[in-house]
Design a protein around this nucleic acid. Structure first.
Length: 258
DNA sequence: ATGACTGGAGTTTCCAGA
């Protein structure tokens, strides 16, 4: 089983690249964030054997699960919690696939640090844990993939001194992320590569940041113990980030034994 | 020239992204 998560920064602009990733990488699940559109035809990639489950808004946010498998229940937002949050449904989509529950998640950016929006981001991450506590136990097969907009540790940014306290590497965000993980999740990249430095999934469009590898690791695949046992390989798809007109995020790929 | 960010909305300029 192959799972890919990718913040595409506009589905419409990246449509051909999404198709390329599907046909070349052949994932069982492609989790998208920032589709930035209200509607994606669910049969768009039917010729490739894929179905699209999408929940999006006008011009921003938007999450999707593209899969070659049969979906059971699909839900959006925090599933019964915090239904008053207007953005949650454009930031969380989940599906049941046999015994596996799989999420595509787009955590708010939260900039500027200290603003209402920053605290909304922190709250959003704590609410993710609340949702997991309500619905599951860590013994269940759960995968959360997405753009969490948090670099968890010093190794996950190009300059931890320069970036300390800045958005996506602020202590409050990292604490909230750690709290989420401690429910019973494992950071797939770190399961395979505990100490590897310079592994990033996002690079600024400016300052030739990708060429200089001045990036951050903001996209994650978080899994419970049963999936950790089956994890075979994790890789950042740098080639796709290097294409003309790329997203500012690279796809993150995880392979599991069946 | 020693070097320019991208996408959406909507109307020529602003906002959000990270």
């Amino acid at each position: 089983m192959r799972v890919i998560t990718w913040n595409v920064n506009s589905f419409n602009i990246r449509k051909a690249q999404v198709e390329k990733v599907l046909s070349e990488k052949k994932p069982d699940f492609l989790l998208l964030q920032e589709t930035k559109t209200e509607k994606i035809p669910e049969n768009l990639f039917k010729p490739l054997g894929y179905q699209i489950y999408h929940s999006g808004g006008k011009g921003r946010n938007g999450v999707a699960i593209i899969t070659n498998r049969e979906a059971g229940k699909i839900f959006t937002g925090f599933e019964g919690l915090y239904d008053e949050d207007p953005q949650a449904k454009e930031r969380i989509i989940a599906g049941k696939f046999g015994s596996l529950y799989l999420f595509s998640i787009y955590v708010p950016n939260g900039s500027p640090v200290g603003s209402d929006y920053f605290f909304y981001k922190i709250q959003f991450i704590y609410r993710l844990r609340e949702m997991l506590e309500k619905l599951f136990t860590p013994k269940d097969e759960i995968l959360l993939g997405g753009d969490f907009n948090v670099a968890p540790e010093s190794e996950d940014v190009y300059d931890p001194v320069l970036l300390d306290g800045q958005i996506c590497f602020h202590e409050r965000e990292r604490k909230a992320f750690k709290n989420l993980i401690e429910w019973g999740l494992f950071d797939a990249l770190r399961v395979k590569y505990p100490d590897k430095k310079g592994v990033f999934t996002w690079w600024d469009y400016q300052f030739s940041a990708f060429k200089k590898n001045l990036g951050m690791r903001l996209d994650h695949i978080l899994i419970t113990e049963p999936l950790k046992e089956r994890l075979k390989e994790v890789e950042v798809d740098l080639k796709t980030r290097g294409l003309p007109k790329p997203s500012d995020h690279a796809p993150l790929i995880a392979d599991f034994s069946d």
